[in-house]
């Protein structure tokens, strides 16, 4: 206890030591991390100049090029929508397995949880690499990569919605003599429908972004021409593509937000 009435400190000695130590440890980690990167300072210092140079070469965007990418842009949109739809189809059974109140037993519950966390932990681009090996380059690999990657996210949120349903109304529908399927249709589905729609639109929004890059490994969409133009240093075309992507992402974000608001 400090008894000097003229001094005041926010933390006592021990707390201050701990705080100091943690701050110090954090700094050490950051410095060590920076050193471990073995940054070539020559590059690092010129990075802003290089970036500025790059953008000056990009400007103005090649407006004429925009007509040649409409196909790829549409394909991107298609991949995102089909991928999301397929993901939902696969996620529904997984969600019922991964929800504690609908899963048949402990083993199926763990299986559901495993699928949810496994599909989530592997990045979409890695899934794309795998599916390109399996189905060859093209949009199909992209759709499957998006779909598999999305299972975990969608199934997890739908499972949470299933766990939160009001058991009373399910019971009431059972009590009138309805079959189990009727109970599902009448008692459970209406309760999870809003969550279902908002999860779908939210994931679709994320998937539009993901669909723009899976082309880097050959899985279709706008990523394919983007990579080609970058490799040919065709910078004005690159800027056109980037603007197109920006537009697509912003529009899909707005659409997705509008749909979510509508079901609430």
């Amino acid at each position: 206890m400090s008894s000097n009435p003229e001094s005041w400190e926010r933390f006592d000695r021990r707390e201050r030591l701990i705080r100091f130590f943690m701050l110090f440890a954090g700094l050490v980690i950051i410095v060590a991390a920076w050193r471990a990167m073995e940054v070539n300072y020559g590059y690092a210092i010129t990075a802003p100049v290089e970036l500025a140079d790059l953008f000056s070469r990009m400007y103005p965007p090649d407006v004429g090029y925009s007509t040649t990418i409409t196909g790829a842009l549409l394909e991107t949109l298609n991949i995102s929508i089909l991928g999301t739809a397929l993901a939902i189809l696969m996620a529904i059974p997984v969600a019922f397995l991964g929800a504690s109140n609908t899963t048949p037993n402990k083993a199926t519950y763990l299986f559901g949880k495993f699928i949810i966390s496994f599909t989530r932990s592997v990045n979409v681009i890695i899934w794309a690499l795998i599916f390109v090996v399996v189905f060859g380059p093209g949009a199909l690999a992209g759709v499957l990569a998006i779909a598999v990657r999305s299972i975990g996210f969608t199934a997890k949120l739908i499972a949470e919605a299933i766990e939160e349903i009001d058991k009373g109304s399910v019971e009431a529908v059972t009590a009138v003599g309805a079959s189990q399927l009727d109970v599902l249709i009448y008692g459970i589905v209406p309760q999870i429908k809003p969550a279902f729609i908002s999860v779908t639109t939210l994931r679709w929004d994320i998937n539009v972004r993901a669909s723009t890059i899976i082309g880097f490994v050959g899985a279709g969409g706008i990523g394919v021409p983007l990579q080609t133009e970058i490799n040919y240093f065709n910078w004005e075309a690159v800027l056109t593509i980037l603007i197109a992507i920006l537009g697509l992402v912003l529009v899909s974000e707005a659409v997705s937000a509008y749909l979510r608001k509508k079901v609430m």
Binding site: N40, E50, L51, L54, R209, I213, G223, I230
Partner: peptide, 18 residues
């Protein structure tokens, strides 16, 4: 709005591999 891999691919061209 831009996916990290798009930003990365542009950065690679600007400051080199690595």
């Amino acid at each position: 709005s831009l996916h990290e891999l798009i930003v990365a691919i542009v950065m690679v061209k600007a400051v080199g591999f690595g």
